[in-house]
Structures are given as structure tokens and as C-alpha cells.
């Protein structure tokens, strides 16, 4: 079951079970700057893989965490925002989530609540943060407190993809949290699903044996 949720033929999401692989997803309205933030963080490494059938863009990155090398896949949407909702495969096996809004557009801040709700339906416990982008447009916003993050107990960053303020800091911290989470997962969603799957199989085998017994038992009576 777990794997049919994550089914994208071009992408084997099982790889995210490997110890040195993490998946980080970006959420937020159209045009808040999700892709520009990725570009700013990755700079020369910037080589996105477009999966247009799934309205999805993937960015690969290699990070050093402690003394380990970790392969990070960033998942960015390429138009799925239009449906105000993401396909379940987007959330599947994600280890962290970066939620972005545009400080110039209130509606993108208000919509965070919807994105967050959907995220928590699929991934109740993964680390998540709130990113206020485009502060270069109006530095005064950094004097204001945006209560959504505080209410949800999420880290909050003022950033600008244009001039680079706090972009790298935010990404590095989220990579660390993704790796941490992976080592000590506090939600066993995926694992539990897989165990359930095996459990179902075992039960079926028992049942079929039981049915055979019943048939044998019944046949004499029929005769």
C-alpha cells in the first residue's frame, strides 16, 4: 500500500529509506518564490529535473552533515499549486517540509493554514518551518510578528531569494532537521503501513488454510 501511494514510475521512492538519502518538500502558493529560493541555495549546483507529467521539479543536492555525506532531494511543485492540494506521492516519505509565503501578499500567508493542514494529514510529525520570502521588497515587515508559526510551534525565517538573506541558513537547518528526523523518526506512518501490508498477507494465508479445512469437513456431509 505504501508504495502504491508513492507510485511515480520514473521515481523509485524506496530509495528514501536508505540511510544517506533524505527528501525535503516545498509547499506554498504560486509565485511566492519557492523555485527562486531553491535556485539561490543551489547556485551552480542548480540542475533541476522536470517531471512535467506530475507537475513536479526535483533538485538534487549533496550535503555534509556532521561527518557524513547526505544526498538530499528537494521536491518543488511545478504548477500543482493550482489544485490547492498536492498528490499524496508528494508527501510520501518526506523527511522535512519548507512552507513559503510572500510578505507582499496576505492571501499567501492566509493559505499557509490549508497547506499545513494537508501536510499534517500525510506527515503528522515531520519537521516543518515557515518562510517569509521577499523581505527585500519591504524591510519593514521584519518588524512584524507573524503568529502562524508561533501558534504551530514552527521555526520562522525572514528571507529574500533576491538578495540572499538567510536563505542558506534556512536550508542548512532544514537539512539537519531532516537527517535528525530520519535517525529518530517520531511518526511511523510509512513503517506502520508496510507492516500492516505484511500482516494482511499472513492473515490471508491462514484464512485460505482454514477455508480448505472447512471444505474438507463439509464434504462428508454433502456425500
Amino acid at each position: 500500500m505504501a508504495d502504491h501511494i508513492g507510485c511515480i514510475p520514473e521515481l523509485d521512492q524506496k530509495k528514501y529509506d536508505a540511510r544517506e538519502q533524505v527528501k525535503i518538500i516545498c509547499l506554498g502558493d504560486s509565485a511566492v518564490g519557492k523555485s527562486k529560493l531553491m535556485e539561490r541555495f543551489l547556485m551552480d549546483e542548480f540542475r533541476p529535473q522536470q517531471l512535467s507529467t506530475y507537475a513536479l521539479t526535483l533538485y538534487k543536492h549533496t550535503a555534509n552533515v556532521g561527518n557524513k555525506t547526505v544526498a538530499v532531494d528537494f521536491w518543488d511543485t511545478a504548477g500543482q499549486e493550482r489544485f490547492q492540494s498536492m498528490h499524496p506521492s508528494y508527501y510520501h516519505k518526506a523527511h522535512a517540509c519548507i512552507m513559503v509565503f510572500d510578505v507582499q501578499r496576505k492571501i499567501t500567508y492566509k493559505n499557509l493554514a490549508n497547506w499545513y493542514k494537508e501536510l499534517r494529514e500525510y506527515r503528522p510529525e515531520i519537521p516543518c518551518c515557515v518562510v517569509a520570502n521577499k523581505i527585500d521588497a519591504d524591510l519593514k515587515v521584519t518588524q512584524r510578528s507573524f503568529s502562524f508559526a508561533k501558534k504551530q510551534g514552527l521555526p520562522f525565517y525572514f528571507v529574500s531569494a533576491a538578495d540572499g538573506t538567510n536563505v542558506v541558513k534556512m536550508f542548512r537547518e532544514m537539512i539537519n532537521r531532516a537527517v535528525d528526523y530520519k535517525q529518530n523518526p517520531s511518526d511511523f506512518m510509512d513503517e506502520v503501513l508496510e507492516e500492516l501490508e505484511n500482516f494482511d498477507l499472513e492473515k490471508k494465508e491462514e484464512n485460505s488454510e482454514a477455508e480448505e479445512d472447512e471444505l474438507k469437513a463439509e464434504s462428508p456431509e454433502l456425500a
Binding site: 521584519t142 510578528s145 503568529s147 538578495d163 541558513k169
Partner: peptide, 19 residues
């Protein structure tokens, strides 16, 4: 600066009208 970091003074923060 690639990893430009700026701290914003939280003590002066005012409530946001969006909230």
C-alpha cells in the same frame, strides 16, 4: 555573500495586521 545571515531584532516586533 553566499550564506548571508541577518538577525532581526525581535524585541521591537509589532503584531501583524494579517493576524
Amino acid at each position: 555573500v553566499y550564506d548571508l545571515e541577518v538577525e532581526f531584532d525581535k524585541s521591537k516586533e509589532e503584531k501583524c495586521s494579517w493576524d
